[in-house]
Write a protein that binds this DNA or RNA. Sequence first.
RNA 1: GCCCUCAUCGUCUAGGGGACUAGGACGUAGGCCUUUCAAGCCUAAAACCGGAGUUCGAAUCUCCGUGGGGGCACCA
Length: 495
Amino acid sequence: MTVRVRFAPSPTGYLHIGGARTALFTWLFARKHDGQFILRIEDTDQKRSVPGAIKAIQDDLRWLGLDWDEGPDTGGNFGPYIQSERIDLYQKHAEWLVEHGHAYHCYCTSDELSAMRKEQMEKKMPLGYDGRCRHLTPEQIAEKEEAELPSVIRFKMKREGETAIQDAVRGEIIYKNSQITDAVLLKSDGFPTYHLANVVDDHLMEITHIMRADEWINTAPLHINLYRAFGWDLPVYAHLSLILNPSGKGKLSKRTQSFSDSGQQVLVKVEEFRDGGYLPATVVNFLANIGYSTGDDREIYPVEEAIAAFQLKNINPAPSRLPYSKLDWLNGQYIQKLSPPELAAAIRPYVDAAGIGISAKALLAIAPAMSNRLKKLPDAIPFLAFMDDAANMDITASKLIHQKNLPPENALRGFQQARDLIAAIAPYNLDGISSGLLEIGAGVTMNGKAGPFLGKLRLGVTRQKVSPPVFEAILALGRDKTAVRLDEAIGLLSA
RNA sequence: GCCCUCAUCGUCUAGGGGACUAGGACGUAGGCCUUUCAAGCCUAAAACCGGAGUUCGAAUCUCCGUGGGGGCACCA
């Protein structure tokens, strides 16, 4: 049997990191079993649907590399993949249930319902629909229909016995049927609720495994009874534990955008991770280790290997928080794996946005020196500010000397020799620059080591306290600009 | 209130009756290296929620607590 799984977000906005994790696990499972991964849009609540959300979600999934075999844009044999385009299907199935005695029309108004709810709360009774329309006589129904009262269709849940769900993550869970209320299947506007649409579509689309967040688990017995009422085979359920706020209080999915928690910036939208300078490979690897472990001690799991190792039984049932500090570390690891051209391309948007003028050639030249200095892509900005002629710190002669190891006249000599080297060196490459400057440095300091001179040289050339290593900086800056800055330093030292 | 569920270092986790002196990772602290900042390497501190029970033996199995999370909509 071919594995067919789906990710079914509702288009209420962006893709949440928790949703991305559900999508990832589902996708991993599909790829592992050479199955199909389907994207379905659950937009049965017209009020909550946001224009553009479908595209945003698709963009985020694509950015993560989670490709789907069937979906709104790609099509497939089980479409349409947008629920609002399948309304007639749900209505037909709801009617079928009514005709076969598994569902009934309910004419309760929302006022009635909230009054009932209020009473239940006051009396500390179990909350839920009490089934008052369940036993309407044919006459009463005729009367209400005559009056054209709006109605919904509710599932006629069995009152006796219990329903067991076999969850791939948690094992067997048993619910008493008496505690499952008669859920609305079809709303008065003719749209289905999640329960109906979900079950009908999963069956029609031949979904074999349902992977979804744990917040759905209490609806599983309802769904199982729906499958049975229809006479359909059950899919396998796997409920993923939730991601909690950093404080551990409440689920993260309640948060709609990044926020600060004890000095830590907490990202919640996938686009925030992207904009924050995390690589998609990092986010995927990071997410794959939340509530999941293959049992070995590895932290770095590139997608291909994550697919190969993926098993439902390795999913951890306990809820967890996102270890953001580990995310930073992981991103640093993935950045180090990037080739210089890849790194340069990744950094580009950030330096541009920061207004730092740096040529493609220069950026590529400095890229190797950047890779182990970045946790996040925008970390490159302060490092590369020196490339721009504007906005550099003021340098004074006193900052270019070191009392003990590099007195004024030595500093001047060093800078002059460096100036000559830069002007003459051919080819202008890292080897020549570094060996030449190392030699000059060693010859000019009191302790005979290049270090003290190189530190001052960095300051003179980059005009930053913190910068990429000088040799690389000089290479990236280029012969002419470097010479100009050295001349300025010489001018200060000879004044 | 009712129902479901979860529980190992600060965090993410390994472990599933004896291999546990409870392992790894991030973070933290210290050290090495070093032209700054990093990276890298080394070291350290740091956990089995509590109580009963089962057993020769419990982090591991059972029960009861406690704590956390989720659900109880004409939202998904």
